[in-house]
Write a protein that binds this DNA or RNA. Structure first.
Length: 276
DNA sequence: AAGGGTCACAACCGCTTTTAG
DNA sequence: GCTAAAAGCGGTTGTGACCCT
């Protein structure tokens, strides 16, 4: 038959995680690595279901997560990607490696949706006067162009994003937290393998970006069909080693930045994305 | 200062897909 | 190949913080 049940539902704790629970979970993952979530509650004694442990790790405790305000660049990326991919938050998050899908989803629901609705209605009132086309695709394109022309030096930001070592605020925070709370127990700077965890995670991300991961996200793969050929054959070995090749969307963002608009190309892209 | 409204975000719920037995 | 649990994902909710009157 199937697998044994992961955890019985009786006695499962719900609600916000306490710092103590966080420490237990992080310590366990430090030792055993992420994965095999079924065994986490049993082995740690946490009164949480495996699902809750996984979510807590991926959305909050995982190293490399950037918290706090979204940069205009990130905001623009999300708007772009949402217009292209829809509410595929996990796929969108794969292009923003320091943000979680949950974070992006929350930011979209609380900030960007309202923002776009507002500007959309403003645009609609203008377009009524000017008798412009008001198809959703064109609206989306206009939003993107506004974004692109208003953000400063996106290509630099993107480059920074691609190269940034996610020595994260989360890691620092946890380091600090662990140090504060369990000062007597361990030497965190030596024992906490953030670099290892980050490394494996980055590798995974890089694979996804490159489309090498057979079990990776479907959407970027689809997009890679349209990928500009020659990305990998540009001959810059250092680039290949240090930064993943640019995907279709990343290239597009860079090009848009340098060319401030490209409405026709965008229309074409929207048509393409609608076909996918 | 107090109370009501709004916002932001962590966490949960439920559905779908993947995988182990 | 089938079944059932694990894992993944998107939608929704609960709650604390903040703002306004």
């Amino acid at each position: 038959m199937g697998r044994p049940p992961c955890c019985d539902k009786i006695g499962i704790k719900k609600g916000p995680w306490t710092p103590e629970e966080d420490i237990i979970l992080v310590s366990y993952i430090q030792e055993h690595g992420p994965g095999n979530w079924r065994s986490v509650p049993t082995n740690t004694g946490l009164l949480r279901c495996s699902k809750s442990c996984r979510l807590r790790w991926t959305n909050y405790l995982r190293p490399g997560i950037k918290r706090g305000n979204f940069t205009p660049h990130e905001e623009g990326m999300i708007i772009h990607l949402q217009a292209l991919l829809g509410n595929k938050w996990a796929s969108i998050a794969s292009y923003l490696p320091q943000r979680t899908d949950n974070d992006i989803k929350n930011y979209w629901n609380t900030h960007l949706k309202k923002k776009l609705n507002k500007s959309e209605s403003e645009e609609r009132s203008i377009s009524e006067n000017m008798a412009l086309q008001t198809s959703a695709a064109r609206n989306a394109i206009n939003h993107r162009s506004t974004y692109a022309s208003s953000t400063e030096n996106i290509s630099r930001l993107l480059e920074g994003w691609m190269r940034a070592s996610p020595k994260s605020s989360t890691a620092d925070f946890l380091d600090q937290k662990l140090q504060n709370r369990t000062n007597d127990h361990m030497d965190h700077h030596n024992q906490f393998p953030y670099e290892q965890l980050q490394g494996s995670w980055e590798e995974g991300h890089s694979k996804r970006i490159n489309g090498d991961d057979d079990q990776g996200f479907g959407v970027p793969k689809k997009i890679s069909v349209n990928n500009v050929s020659g990305d990998h054959e540009d001959g810059d070995d250092d680039h290949d080693h240090n930064t993943p090749p640019l995907t279709f969307i990343e290239k597009w963002l860079l090009e848009e930045t340098s060319n401030g608009g490209q409405m026709e190309e965008m229309s074409h892209l929207m048509e393409l994305s609608n076909m996918l």
